[in-house]
Design a binder for these strands. Sequence first.
DNA 1: TGATTAATTAGATATTTGTCTAAATGATTA
DNA 2: TAATCATTTAGACAAATATCTAATTAATCA
Lengths: 105, 105
Amino acid sequence: MIKLSLMNNLFKALNDSTRRQILDLLRGGDMNAGEIAERFDMSKPSISHHLDLLRQSGLVEATKQGQFVNYSLNTTVLDELLAWLISFQKADLSTTETSTPKKVS
Amino acid sequence: MIKLSLMNNLFKALNDSTRRQILDLLRGGDMNAGEIAERFDMSKPSISHHLDLLRQSGLVEATKQGQFVNYSLNTTVLDELLAWLISFQKADLSTTETSTPKKVS
DNA sequence: TGATTAATTAGATATTTGTCTAAATGATTA
DNA sequence: TAATCATTTAGACAAATATCTAATTAATCA
């Protein structure tokens, strides 16, 4: 069973190029908020907001270390999405051709 | 290589509960616009708009058949997304524990 | 041909989203 | 303690989005 709110937050989090870039960055290892912000041509508060959305979705975890906040990737959340996707691939088996309809342009 | 615009459209299309429900519906087989609209408590033009976004992302294909427009699922687009997801799972191998930092609430 | 049906387009509107600057919070250090 | 540094919160604003009703287009049928 897939929790709706989880999927909602997940797709919402992923529906932004900056946030996906942040996830890509974190694949190379943990980073703190400042280090992440440095990589973008965008204000720190904006990055902080993006990090918050990523955290809400569960895609990243934030841990305070002194005055820094460390961000790390949490890919377990993606398992739900992966399962959802794979179920679609399976559903595609019943491809019964009909005449030859025209694609709508 | 993953095309950015494709991923943008894909995540955009998936970032809506109604559109995901439409995809789920189409797993059961093709449906025309009216049949799809019947299933939702929403005006036909709104559903038409959702179908348009799904079509733009490549997730569905629309073929005109008489006065009806048939919509069918196209899961090949999801392959890109699947590949992207799986690459994240791989990246998660380097989990080196440190002390025991506290999660930010 | 004229009426009906299926679907989309147009245009309006309220809500959500991404971004910014300024201010606040909290930790470190001189 | 006071200054500095890292980060977030608050508030404003423009752009994007989801929805609606009314109008339009296109196909079918009496």
